[in-house]
């Protein structure tokens, strides 16, 4: 009888802990993203070796990389025999954009210009986004989770810590690789 009581309590405890862990995960972990089309990055960026900017063309021109317009997909996938997934793309031929869902999100108080990083600094996309070219289906979550420390680390690595002057009106802010908070926070 006593043993049963203990077992029952232990079981309840385990269940409760599991529930709490599950709830915590559900509440705090970002929900997985399901894309309308199972786009294989591997086929495009891996096998065909297309540069990322072929589709994410705004990355070189703008602060935001943006999602590729449907017309761009259709410029290759207009006709011919198609897999079911490509057929889904073709369904948008009549107009309308594919409702791609955003996977990567920066906090709203951070300003990250893609253009500067891609064009001027020539940072590869994989540095922040991870090996996207190996995926044969869209990722449900970002491959890498970056924190401010990662940004700072890169900025400092490229500038060299030693030459980072600590004085008052230093040349820090105006320089290409600034570690001034105001350079990214808004």
């Amino acid at each position: 009888m006593r043993w049963h009581g203990v077992g029952w309590r232990a079981g309840a405890g385990v269940v409760a802990l599991g529930l709490i862990a599950w709830a915590a995960f559900e509440i705090w972990a970002a929900p997985p993203v399901t894309q309308p089309i199972q786009f294989p990055h591997k086929t495009h960026a891996g096998d065909l070796s297309l540069p990322c900017t072929t589709c994410h063309e705004r990355a070189e021109k703008d602060a935001v990389a943006g999602r590729p317009p449907t017309a761009l997909c259709l410029s290759c996938h207009a006709g011919g025999d198609a897999t079911p997934e490509i057929k889904k793309v073709q369904a948008f031929e009549g107009g309308g954009e594919i409702p791609w869902k955003r996977v990567w999100r920066l906090p709203p108080h951070v300003y990250f210009p893609h253009r500067t990083h891609v064009v001027a600094a020539k940072v590869t996309c994989q540095t922040c986004h991870g090996p996207m070219e190996t995926l044969d289906r869209p990722p449900a979550r970002p491959l890498k989770t970056l924190a401010m420390d990662d940004c700072i680390a890169c900025h400092e690595k490229r500038t060299g810590r030693a030459e980072r002057p600590a004085g008052p009106v230093a040349v820090v802010a105006a320089r290409a690789l600034s570690t001034d908070c105001n350079a990214c926070h808004r």
């Binding site: 108080h109 008052p168 009106v169 040349v171 105006a174 001034d180 105001n182």
Partner: peptide, 16 residues
């Protein structure tokens, strides 16, 4: 260090 004078003289306010 949420508010500081940035090297270009702007007094920054980092809300985060």
């Amino acid at each position: 260090y949420a508010t500081y004078r940035n090297p270009e003289g702007i007094v920054a306010q980092i809300h985060a």
